[in-house]
């Protein structure tokens, strides 16, 4: 065997070792939390990777001792209405910015670009006070409004880019045929921009499952809690005595969201790649 051949084999060996190690690191925390949820004990201390015996008791406890079902329904409700509201707002805005030329357009685009860089809660004191004044504090509606409002700049920019890519001759031809703006939108633009609209809808649906801070700010009473708040409270204490219950809850949230996300990331990479190719 020649020297270079040996070297190539050694390099490839190390590459595969690296891949395997990274794969283990990627999977281990996920596997660990799943196994933890089947552990009979309650505390982090007594948890082992391979449980002494498998039990589903923590999944039952979530519903009996905690209001897990209620949190799930709350989050689902907030996520659903955030998705609808954000989608409507984003479509209106993106359609206007993409298909019309009007005074103030450039300024609106610039404002959106800058605003989308800010995390929602930089303005949280004022949002808190405004919601309080409007009687929306500690209501799901208040939280939905905050989420949907936050989705406008980024989402509109994305969808506007997609609308821009649709040949202008299509809506113009429809207009000459006497189609109204509403018809042009539903019959021409909507079918052609289905992937990006799905993406915006799903990402707004997922966001409320992930958010802790705004939910914590707006929602106060126990019966309004979302999953993120409930799960955080289980492990924020010093002793972690509800750790296995947290693990069960984490699995029940992570499984559907992860599946949605894997479905979603194809759009995301495609969209970002298209966006990047335009830069």
């Amino acid at each position: 065997m020649s020297f270079s051949k040996v070297r190539r084999i050694i390099v490839r060996f190390f590459i595969y070792v690296l891949l395997v190690c990274t794969a283990v690191t990627s999977i281990y925390p996920i596997l660990w939390i799943m196994m933890s949820s089947f552990n009979p004990g309650t505390a982090l201390y007594s948890t082992t990777l391979i449980p002494e015996r498998f039990t589903l008791v923590h999944y039952r406890e979530l519903f009996l001792e905690k209001d897990f079902g209620l949190w799930y329904i709350n989050t689902l409700k907030i996520a659903f209405f955030t998705m609808i509201l954000a989608l409507v707002l984003v479509i209106f805005t993106a359609y206007a910015l993409s298909q019309f030329r009007f005074r103030g357009r450039r300024m609106s685009l610039m404002a959106m670009l800058i605003l989308q860089a800010f995390p929602g809660f930089m303005t949280m004191i004022a949002i808190y006070l405004l919601l309080l004044q409007m009687g929306l504090l500690d209501t799901h509606l208040g939280l939905i409004l905050v989420y949907a409002g936050g989705a406008i700049p980024g989402g509109s920019w994305l969808v506007k880019g997609y609308f821009d890519g649709i040949p202008r001759s299509l809506p113009e031809a429809a207009k000459i045929d006497g189609a109204s703006n509403a018809t042009i939108f539903t019959k021409v633009m909507m079918p052609m921009s289905f992937p990006i609209l799905t993406f915006v809808a799903l990402s707004n649906f997922i966001a409320p499952w992930m958010d802790y801070i705004l939910a914590r700010l707006v929602l106060r009473s126990a019966d309004k809690k979302t999953l993120a708040i409930g799960l955080y409270e289980m492990v924020s204490g010093r002793m972690n005595t509800e750790f296995t219950m947290f693990a069960a809850g984490a699995v029940m949230v992570a499984v559907p969201i992860t599946i949605l996300f894997i479905f979603l990331q194809r759009f995301m990479i495609q969209g970002l790649a298209e966006g990047a190719s335009k830069m």
Partner: peptide
């Protein structure tokens, strides 16, 4: 891709 797919806060 898994670590990216699992909800961040979890």
């Amino acid at each position: 891709i898994l670590p990216w797919a699992v909800p961040g806060f979890i």
